[in-house]
Design a protein around this nucleic acid. Structure first.
Lengths: 206, 206, 206, 206
DNA sequence: CATGAATGAGCTTTCATTCAT
DNA sequence: TATGAATGAAAGCTCATTCAT
């Protein structure tokens, strides 16, 4: 039996979370379909099943919705990436696992991937802000992992870790973007290993 | 006295080209500064030194201006890349030279770089179209170059050339994007070699 | 232990009055600060310490709050003005005392004064309604007082009492409005005598 | 025959003035009918016979339209009032003529009068701004005229000229406001003399 | 009586595009 | 060709009011 609700037993938080959640999900869908700039807040509201004004009870502006989608995504990936670093010792394996995580995440939700790969890229303002927010941290994580590998003698010591991190990210990023734009529907995650293979051992024959 | 200009005595071709050119240059500047969506056609016209309506004598729409900026850039780079392939025999050197071309081009015109790295990325519509247009060709060029290298025994034969091309492009693309967003002002072109070094030989110590 | 309150044992009248009172006071403050049109019912509720919806238990609409502020103010002044007429015999003194009352009232509560002098004036709809309501009665009172003074031979018989009433009210009204808009903080009430001096004896030297 | 229009004979300025003029006239009408806050810019545009956007070619904002109505009115009255002071020597006559001008102006255009008497009064922001703008100057003019009369021995020397100016303005202002709100249609201008009579000689019998 | 989350109509302003000159 | 005044559709956001709890 469900206990009676008293002041000490208030309405479940999920009610609020649900509506916020619904708006974020709807926005991801709508932004992915029409593009952020072409999307109307009214569309987001309709898809979320709420009134226009309700959106503004949960988000200060249309832009804040986009930011929230980004924040949540980055936060989650960052924490999972850190978990990987905790549990995996080998630097090469760490990179491989993070790469897989990166593409699995995007591959699992095409709409979210479109927002991340396309909609978030269309303005320097966004990119600078978002870069400052969580993206820089992600790059830092790669860089630290690489440097640790260098100290362990696994990676070439003469390489600039920052550049490696960019090559790593750039490669995965391009995989994701191409996947989105391609009309053929293939699995994205497996490309992580292929990309890593190249970055770890290069393309040159020995 | 200057002869009256009639329909039978039209303005020299260069005048037309000049004005079109001025509008494209102005648009590159304006789009880079304010972002494509926030830029007003009136601003482009003002910077180009023409009237608002004149823009529409040379371009069908605001969007077509963006497309034209893209087209011109890609066309130029493609032809130069082909020239490189003509004159260079070694596959590794070819990739190195193309990479340098890629970053030299972007590094030479920050405004153009911003348009290419940021403004052109903000809509799947643009990206699909542009991808279909010249970008796919650029990727194809890398891919062909790589496959030729494979046949020559220079590159690992088991690698998927398409993936290699994406890694190649993605790495350079990320260099460029990072360069734009960074507040520190460094030279972009030299990063081409660093990136190529990684892609050619990998990050792993031997 | 405090006895449970049921429908048969309702909250004391004063509680109700208190809440209504609190809302009116809050509204006066908020309207004075932000202007009636820019004021949000939510602000009034917050300042009054009640929930948004509660406001609607006491007032039909935002407009009715404004009307109520007006009504209360006019009713009070009218009854006091009538008391003055009761206790004072001389027509000149009556006018003088009413003028003082008028400006004392407004001078004692700057927020209320702002609502009366500014916020209530911004719409013909309000003004017509309010005029019909209590303002006309106030003007009538002045007029009657003046006519009685005419019959007593105190005032010039050839003057139109309606016009005198308007001059009387207009003069005081302008004192009040100027006082509100002035950044210098002076006492309003003393101006009543100065204005009355002019109206009673004119500005011309004899 | 209308002369052909060449570059040396450009479109008449009146074209521009006409449109601006039409918008101001339309706005006066619309604001008077519905109130400034309730008026939609679209209504103003429709009445003026232009598109919504055209309004913004001539005015920065809806508020600027209101300000412009005020400015024009005040500027005109001020310059006429100054002309009166030029041509009339007697201080009493000056005041009488200015009072008549004041009410004639308002009486000649009921819509304009409503905007001046009602719409411009509904916000401290407006009133402070407008007060600072031209209204203060008008009051100053009255005050100076009165002080000159005092020096000439025409007016009582002990009176505070600022207060006299307020009584003068307040009386006329109330005449105008009452005229607007009254459903009876009478002539406004004649009330100027009646009001002046009171202010000059007072209401008391001698 | 009290609450406050939800509603959704409403409006100013912008700006790509057109077209008469 | 060139102009730039005019157009009018479009949308983010606010806030008075309601009503389920």
């Amino acid at each position: 039996m469900r206990p009676a609700r008293t002041t000490l037993n208030p309405a479940p938080r999920t009610q609020i979370a649900d509506k916020r959640e619904a708006i974020l999900r709807a926005a991801t869908k709508v932004f992915a379909e029409s593009g952020y700039f072409n999307s109307k807040v009214a569309d987001v509201a309709r898809v979320a099943g709420v009134a226009d004004g309700t959106v503004y009870l949960y988000f200060k502006s249309k832009e804040e919705i986009l930011r929230s989608i980004f924040d949540r995504g980055v936060t989650e990936v960052l924490s999972e990436a850190r978990a990987i670093i905790e549990e995996v010792a080998d630097a090469r394996e760490r990179l491989r696992r993070i790469a897989r995580l990166h593409l699995e995440r995007l591959g699992a939700d095409r709409d979210l991937a479109i927002v991340f790969q396309v909609e978030l890229r269309g303005s320097t303002k966004f990119m600078e802000e978002f870069s400052a927010a969580g993206f820089a941290e992600y790059l830092r994580l790669i860089r630290d992992t690489f440097e640790e590998g260098q100290r362990a003698g696994v990676f070439r010591p003469e390489l600039n870790a920052k550049i490696v991190a960019k090559v790593f990210f750039g490669a995965l990023d391009e995989m994701a973007t191409n996947w989105i734009l391609s009309r053929r529907r293939y699995k994205l995650a497996p490309l992580a290993d292929a990309a890593l293979d190249i970055i770890l051992d290069g393309v040159c024959a020995r």
